[in-house]
Design a protein around this nucleic acid. Structure first.
Length: 565
RNA sequence: UGGGGUGUGGCCAAGCGGUAAGGCAUCGGCCUUUGGAGCCGAGAUUCGUAGGUUCGAAUCCUACCGCCCCAGCCA
């Protein structure tokens, strides 16, 4: 089955939603949200969540909100909110007028806290952070009640209001929910609701010195927005009882259902914000959009299309078991998309000069070349051909192995769209390095075929030397040299697995002249090599291309299996 | 040895009591003016393990095993 024919299967979330709709829950409404914390750049794992949330909303004629979970000012920044919005839009999703910030609810969150205090379900605690931890107990032992647990509502109200008013130093008091210090679920052992922190917030500035915790903020934000299905990752499963506790004990408009799914892991890369941040901070990569990273910004710069990423998100499915998806699937999605739409061009990465000895000196002729065999509507272009050309170094071998269809002494190959050429002589320098090939062409083979039906197996790409453009090409490869560092030696830091060959810069590559007008972001297939896009560092005088993904290379496989024999 | 999850081919993933979808990867073959693309075909007697229920179990029951998450005033 071709991927474009793929119809979304039922995953467990769709199953839940359809059951809810059938049961008439929420009046049949589906309303989701994507709630990033603006403390880093979005990555492909977030893309899975974005596609899920926005996709489900679209599928069931509902809505999906974009909401920034910005309750921890110390880590958050507008740089991140801007990048997140740009990335979600680029992926092709639209939150219309439903852009929210948890910080917009600070006043309501505060009122709800007052409500909990009045109903005796929250109290101000003056234990130190260290004491709170000690009182919490352990995984196997119950916690101990805080001595502040039985403070009167009046006193709690007074203290909490004074917390807000800034009368107490940072960390001196917290507001806690009064639930059960003996609960086997640590999240229910009187979790902290508010902490005092004199930090400037990227939106509310210095208006507040107390900030609500995620666990308290999230369910209320969902309810205030009328969210029906609050989809999050597995590690929040343990938090669900508290999510429900908050909503059950507060006069909120509705009670959304929290549903947890497994986050995406991808082989040969890292996905945690901490690790990504570390790579960027330590300059192990060149910024958040370094094309080796799995961030959305990096994938965009690398040449990925939103379509490829969305298709990928659909293909990987949604489930609750933790898994590591093969990077090959992501690459497959890009190839599949670009195969249909990328213009084919010729580029020689490592040039080997070829002189066509029987071609008239000074003559230049123009050949027709199709732009995309998958899409006749893409039209054709003209290609200059002349006496001096470049072909790829690896397309010539002095000692051709078995099944090597390319050029070697005395052998004939086809130059794509041009002529058959035969290699007559190999020219070397004093060190024995091949510097030039002297070949002859068959004038009868113009266009790449002859009437005699002669079989020519090999077809190489080439460029005409005089008209070629000199460009820089950046060859990207896997970030890590192992598929799953977590499955390796646990003592080792992930940085020890960084692939030293993840970036190879190749200068003085030769590309056909039609590329002169290429603009940053333009995508092409370099014939027989891969898909490339013009990098943001590129300029008309100094073109720079990124390799997005290679083409499948069956010769490489054959050669590899020959060598292993 | 507390609680919450989860185990289906190399990697994902359907399946929800009636006799193992699909995708990626792999391996054959065809085709080819990209060794690209495309096309055709192959692969789990078996669903973590062991018992049990049933005419019939990946699906139900029991026990065991493995892996993940939780002791932030992070999200």
């Amino acid at each position: 089955m071709a991927v474009e024919d793929f119809t979304p299967g039922l995953n467990f979330i769709r199953t839940i939603i359809e059951a809810d709709i059938k049961a008439g829950k929420n009046g049949g409404r589906v309303h989701t949200r994507f709630p990033p914390e603006p403390n880093g750049y979005l990555h492909i794992g977030h893309a899975k969540s974005i596609c899920l949330n926005f996709g489900l909303a679209a599928e069931y004629k509902g809505f999906c909100n974009l909401r920034f979970d910005d309750t921890n000012p110390g880590k958050e920044d507008v740089e991140y909110v801007d990048s997140i919005m740009a990335d979600v839009r680029w992926l092709g999703f639209d939150w219309q007028d439903r852009l929210y910030y948890a910080s917009d609810y600070f006043e309501q969150l505060y009122e709800f806290a007052l409500h909990l205090i009045r109903s005796g379900q929250a109290y101000v605690c003056d234990l130190t952070a260290e004491q709170v931890r000690q009182y919490r107990g352990t995984l196997t032992e119950c916690g101990i009640n805080s001595p502040c647990r039985d403070r009167s509502a009046e006193e709690n109200l007074d203290l909490f209001q004074r917390m807000r008013a800034g009368e107490f130093p940072d960390g001196s008091y917290v507001l806690r929910a009064k639930i059960d210090m003996a609960s086997p679920n640590l999240n229910m052992r009187d979790p902290v609701l508010y902490r005092i922190r004199r930090e400037s917030h990227h939106r509310t500035g210095d208006a507040w010195c107390i900030y609500p915790m995620y666990d308290y903020t999230h369910p209320i934000s969902d309810a205030l927005e009328g969210v029906t299905h609050s989809i999050c990752t597995l590690e929040f499963e343990d938090h669900r009882p508290f999510y429900d506790w908050v909503l059950d004990n507060l006069p909120v408009p509705c009670h959304p259902q929290q549903i947890e799914f497994a986050r995406l892991n991808l082989s040969y890369t890292v996905m945690s914000k901490r690790k990504l941040l570390e790579l960027v901070d330590k300059a192990l990569v060149h910024g958040w959009d370094d094309p080796r990273l799995p961030t959305i910004a990096a994938l965009r710069r690398r040449g990925f299309t939103p379509e490829a990423i969305r298709n990928f998100a659909e293909l990987i499915g949604v489930a609750k078991r933790e898994s590591v998806v093969d990077m090959a699937l992501l690459e497959h999605c890009l190839r599949e998309d670009l195969n249909k739409r990328a213009k084919r061009v010729m580029a020689v990465l490592r040039p080997l000069k070829v002189v066509i000895t029987n071609y008239p000196e000074g003559q230049v002729e123009e050949l027709d070349a199709e732009n995309n065999p998958e899409d006749p509507a893409a039209g054709t272009r003209r290609l200059p051909f002349s006496r001096e050309l470049y072909i790829e170094q690896e397309d010539f071998r002095e000692d051709p192995p078995k099944k090597f269809f390319r050029l070697s002494l005395g052998k004939e190959i086809r130059l794509k769209h041009a002529y058959y050429i035969r290699c007559d002589e190999v020219v070397k320098d004093n060190n024995g390095r091949i510097t030039e090939l002297r070949c002859s062409y068959d004038p009868e083979s113009r266009g790449g075929w002859t009437k005699d039906g002669r079989k020519v197996l090999g077809t190489s790409h080439w460029v005409s030397a005089a008209q070629a453009l000199d460009v820089e090409v950046r060859l990207y490869d896997k970030l890590l040299s192992v598929a799953n560092p977590a499955g390796e030696n646990e003592e080792k830091d992930f940085k020890e697995y960084l692939n030293p060959a993840s970036l190879e810069i190749v200068k003085n590559c030769k590309v056909e002249p039609s590329l002169a007008a290429a603009k940053p972001g333009d995508r092409f297939q370099f014939l027989r090599q891969g898909y490339f896009c013009v990098d943001s560092d590129s300029s008309p005088q100094a073109l720079v291309f990124n390799r997005s993904v290679t083409l499948r290379d069956s010769w490489a496989k054959i050669e590899k299996s020959q060598q292993s024999k």
